[in-house]
Design a protein around this nucleic acid. Sequence first.
DNA 1: ATGTCGAGCAAAGCTCGA
Length: 259
Amino acid sequence: MKIATFNINNINRRLPNLLAWLAARKPDVVCLQELKATDRQFPRSAIAEAGYGAAFVGQSAWNGVAILARGVDPVVTQTSLPGDPDDDQARYIEAAVDGIIIASLYAPNGNPQPGPKYSYKLAWMERLHAHAQELLDSKLPIVLAGDYNIVPEPRDIYVTTSYRDNALVQPAPRAAYAALLAQGWTDALRKLHPETPDLYTFWDYMRNRWPRNAGLRLDHLLLSKKVAKRLRAVGVDKEVRGEEGASDHAPVWIDLKPE
DNA sequence: ATGTCGAGCAAAGCTCGA
């Protein structure tokens, strides 16, 4: 079973790239972020024709998350991250597919820091921590997949000072990510590639960062223990980032052994 | 490496978010 996460950066703008990738890689489940589309604008028919059921939470212009499942409709369990009824940003959806609870999350970027956006980022991560603990307590197999907008460690970014003041690399967000791992989640990419350098999932459009491989690791799949035991392979479909009209992120995927 | 990209607003270029 192959589960992927992909910050698509506007699903309609990127639809040809997405459909080509779905056809080539045939993931069983795809967590998408940054749809930048309302529910009405979601390309339902194209996704259905590609053979995928879909659950999504859209928003005009910004954010938006979805879960696609090949041949079935995801069974939705959450359409927002619990903990703040006033938060109306479309950043979290969760569904059951083939016995696994799968979340597609788009954590706040948090720039500039300090400031209200940074405070929102940290508060959102605290809410994620609380909900993640509830999910673990359920003892179900769970995958928390998405764009965490956090570079977990210094080796997860190219050598630079450009991001020194960026919210993505600050100690507090890094501590928030580490706190998730401390709950018992497995960072899938690091689990099977503990020493590999240049494990990037995002390359900014600016400053020639893709040709220079000046990347960051922002997109993560966190696995509960039952899922971690089934982990067979994990990778980044890096070539996708080099396509015409590409998103600034590349897909990350895991392959799970049957139960 | 002070730069890319696209959307919104509103009618073209500026501003915003990432």
